[in-house]
Simulated assay, not measured.
Amino acid sequence: MLEFHDIHVHYQKVAALKGVSISVPAGGIVTIVGANGAGKSTTLRCISGLVRPSKGEIRFNGERIDQLPPEKIVARGIAHVPEGRRIFPDLTVEENLRIGAFLRTDTDGIERDLENIFERFPRLRERRTQWARSMSGGEQQMVAIGRAMMSGPKLLLLDEPSMGLSPVMVQEMARIISDISAAGVPVILVEQNAGLALKLASYAYVLEIGSIALEGAAAELRSNDHVRRAYLGG
């Protein structure tokens, strides 16, 4: 579904990605794990058009997208939930969700998807008229994911969805991500919580200082000595 081939990204003279190649199939969860500054968020920002590669190609369903603006990438079916959620604090929960469908014109489909979001996230239905800024961190993450799902994505990019959440909410977020994948939406999951990410994903990439250090089935990487020492605490 997505081919991220030999991608290089520079911030001025600093190389953030150095020849990274990632392949994402049409189903399941692919995770990218690594330390702070490894290039995980840059990878997602590159896919969604927020950062331009200095070299390489990104193809989505066979079409090259690395020169497209972000709104055209969204229109092709890639939705990005950024690190830190980035919801609109002075809009209501429902207004935030409806913004996710801004590029859509299928009114009936939008209403149907909004109802689906409320079924998946009952708390958002209860708080649909509440200001987003008054929500808890976990609830705001639900709003951010729901907003992305309102675009009708064919691929969902999640950047650190468990960051700053309580242990209970981390488990809830894991359930939500699994449910989205099971419903047929492939997910690229960037997580500093490597234990969580490797349990959720079927395939994993380990990114270190802008390069792929390891890749393979997530279950196999969980038992890899380097991964266990560097990311799993033992």
Rank of each mutant, 00 (worst) to 15 (best):
L68V: 06
P70S: 12
K72D: 15
I73K: 12
A75M: 08
A75G: 13
R76G: 12
R76W: 03
R76A: 13
G77Y: 05
G77I: 12
I78M: 04
V81C: 13
V81F: 06
P82T: 10
P82W: 09
P82Y: 07
E83A: 11
E83N: 06
R85L: 06
R85N: 06
R86D: 02
F88R: 00
F88V: 12
F88D: 02
F88A: 08
P89I: 10
V93K: 07
V93C: 07
E94S: 09
E95D: 14
N96A: 01
L97D: 05
R98V: 10
I99T: 04
I99M: 15
G100T: 05
F102Y: 15
F102L: 08
R104N: 07
R104V: 05
R104Y: 08
T105E: 15
D106I: 00
T107E: 15
D108T: 14
D108F: 09
G109N: 00
E111H: 15
R112F: 11
D113P: 04
E115N: 13
N116D: 14
N116T: 12
E119Y: 13
R120V: 08
P122H: 11
L124F: 10
L124R: 11
R125M: 03
R125P: 00
R127V: 00
T129R: 15
W131L: 14
W131Q: 13
A132I: 03
A132T: 13
A132V: 01
A132F: 02
R133A: 11
S134R: 03
M135L: 15
G137L: 06
Q141D: 07
Q141V: 05
Q141N: 06
M142H: 07
M142G: 04
V143T: 04
V143L: 09
A144P: 11
I145Q: 01
G146L: 04
R147G: 12
